[in-house]
Design a protein around this nucleic acid. Structure first.
Lengths: 134, 134
DNA sequence: GGCACCTAGTACCTATTGGAAACCAACCTA
DNA sequence: TAGGTTGGTTTCCAATAGGTACTAGGTGCC
């Protein structure tokens, strides 16, 4: 990356309305994007394989998600002129630095799902008992 | 966490359509939720303070976000009968285990924003040069 | 020749989201 | 009694997202 002047480094603030970091966070705050990144962490995957692996995603939305991630430089799209055509998606080096964090998020979800479900039940039960107040 | 039978531990799969971990990931895949969690990492914050700190969030959406996070057991809502009423939001222990990861995500965004913006420009320029093909 | 496969692009329509603003409740102050 | 403050809820409306389905193109298979 080379030497970079520190001009305005401190002005980046995720809480600020027009800060570009917000744009990045918006992009990452997408369940399909997170799932795609996490899936690609293991290996390069083809379009229809992704479509099959990630249950519930429609063709259109998967295309959009992949296009966005590609635009952000997080994944790479490679076309192989086989028959029928093969399109392989893989992580860029930049994407790889991110997926460690994404993997941690997915891991957290799998680890703490029980606690979350319990909390939800407690919350809902509490709400139900107060229902007459509404 | 104590001893826990390993029954069906391996059945949790974020890629599966109806897996509960998907629900958690969906909840986390929300830019306002991430921003709120990250803000609460520092200290307990009151409703209107959050509203002011997180630029661009509307009252309605902030309320919904907080309610969801509370339901998931990630944040706690405390009412102090002052005048006017004080409502303070803080992280639960469960929420704290998560925010380390959330913070890493926000940190990544601030660190790599330049690379992402550059990638976007390259991508858009490439698209523009191929525009005549469309 | 027709059909299937793979990776899309695009159009149409509907469901959900989200913003703006009004309303509410309690209580203090002027 | 009017007005202000905190922390909401509710209603209305517009924008966006997303699903379905049709189209396409190149090629091997039967």
């Amino acid at each position: 990356m080379g030497v970079r002047p520190e001009t305005e480094m401190t002005t980046y603030d995720v809480y600020a309305k027009n800060c570009p970091t917000r744009l990045v966070l918006d992009r990452l705050a997408d369940k399909w994007a997170l799932l795609v990144l996490n899936r690609l962490r293991e290996e390069p995957v083809r379009f229809n394989q992704l479509r099959r692996d990630i249950e519930g995603v429609s063709q259109k939305v998967l295309t959009q998600t992949l296009r966005n991630l590609e635009r952000d430089g997080l994944i790479r799209r490679q076309i192989f002129p086989t028959v029928p055509v093969t399109v392989e998606y893989s992580l860029t080096p930049l994407g790889q630095t991110l997926t460690r964090t994404v993997a941690a998020l997915a891991h957290w979800a799998e680890e703490n799902i029980d606690a979350v479900l319990t909390a939800q039940q407690t919350f809902d039960a509490s709400r139900a008992s107060h229902a007459h107040l509404r």
